[in-house]
Design a binder for these strands. Structure first.
Lengths: 242, 242
DNA sequence: CGATCCGTTGAAGTGACTCAACTACCGTGG
DNA sequence: CCACGGTAGTTGAGTCACTTCAACGGATCG
């Protein structure tokens, strides 16, 4: 039911895509993998770490259900959320080539992941020749996504960043066949601020302001997009008329 | 002479590395590739585009000499430099899985790159089984590098960002057997500001201030690191004593 | 049912941006 | 060779968007 149609995945192979199409995640054909391989399914509860930075790299995880965040922490405790991950995203790939996980992965909700032990990667590649290419594509896709967020963070102001985030989330939900108007934020304002390089108060203020403009409706973590086009307009403006 | 010793490359496979070890580029054994394959060598002059976003993906390029920047541009003209690339870095890998280049790659200096046509990637993989893993490792490494810069940009102030950049450049030069004290910036202040999410004036001011503290010596694009430990100290402070 | 976490809002402070002026450098062509 | 225009870099002064600090209300949870 929730399975992503293949053509939707293909269509994501844009090089820049739409201005605010920031998602384009590490999507992998969930079905194909599930059908051909007997993967161990792991259930996780809210706030559970799927893995932590520094732990020996054991498996990649394909998100089947739920909502995750990945984050890195520096020695002196500065933290940065590197992304929010949902169904179809592949976790742990950023650690390939090393022996330990490079980030933390935490469930923000109950979820289920499919376990791809690194020890099996080779045999999987042998059985599915396209797997290596898929993996490379997923990695490259993550790079492009990161770059787009870097661009967003360094050129947009607070309100625009929040708008971009909402639109991105809506688009990802759309790609998964979920509602594009009604968003349920699984993360705190602090998480959102961390991801968008803003203080949590600034996120709140941006949301309040967008609501006061009538573009969205905010009720705690439930967001309703009343005028997505208006949000998109916020992002297009400003810079063009320079 | 400039060849990077293999163990230096292995040593880079850290998951977080040192606090300011932000480089860890897409290093690939230059020699191995060069020896086993007969790669076309392409010379480029200053300001020349190696490739541009949207062009059909034809080749990956291994930087043999010179200094490059890669950047993305949004439809409305917002630009972001995604990285500065030097010897050993692999350009174009972020486009894997798509049919066109995802970014611009521009030479900031005369340089030489080795051409890896995409059409040959398959046969290369066949001849060198470790190649696919190397490629994945390079991709994952780029992701981790991007994440570290995201962390840097979102938690450090202007002066700290500039200091982090100088230390990173010094470290990359060190890895290539070049001077760690004497840096020659190949990019403009505007480029630097773009990369660090700062205005060019702010970059100038940060450099001037670091110079006035006696930590560095600035003469146009030549930078001399007089007290790298002091720079490192700037990055460690602040947050820890919170 | 108190303790804690989370979200909102206000008021004051500030670091970086913006705008502007000026200087030094570089390549080009007279 | 020097004059020249354009590019690159520096510095100052004023402004503003975001941060910081603080208080409060509501939800959640043991």
């Amino acid at each position: 039911m929730l399975a992503t149609p293949p053509q939707a995945l293909e269509a994501r192979q844009d090089y820049l895509g739409e201005p605010f199409a920031l998602s384009s995640p590490n999507q992998v054909e969930v079905d194909v993998l599930g059908a051909k391989l007997h993967l161990f399914r792991r259930r996780v509860h809210r706030r559970q770490y799927l893995f932590r930075a520094g732990q020996p790299l054991h498996s990649l995880y394909l998100v089947h259900a739920g909502f995750f965040k990945t984050s890195i922490v520096s020695e002196d405790g500065r933290e940065k959320i590197t992304g929010f991950r949902m169904r179809g995203d592949l976790l742990g790939i950023d650690s390939l080539g090393t022996s330990v996980y490079a980030c933390d992965a935490i469930a923000l909700d109950i979820g289920e992941v499919w376990d791809l032990p690194c020890s099996r990667l080779e045999s999987i590649s042998a059985r599915m020749p396209q797997f290596q290419d898929r993996l490379s594509a997923a990695l490259a896709s993550e790079i492009r996504r990161d770059w787009k967020w870097m661009l967003t963070l360094s050129t947009y102001n607070a309100e625009q960043r929040v708008a971009a985030f909402l639109l991105d989330l809506a688009q990802r939900q759309h790609a998964l066949g979920l509602s594009t108007r009604h968003l349920l934020l699984r993360m705190t304002r602090a998480d959102l601020g961390n991801f968008l390089a803003l203080q949590l108060e600034t996120v709140t203020r941006a949301l309040s302001h967008l609501a006061s403009l009538g573009h969205i409706e905010v009720e705690r973590r439930e967001i309703r997009l009343l005028a997505p086009e208006a949000l998109r307009g916020l992002l297009a403006d400003e810079r063009t008329c320079h």
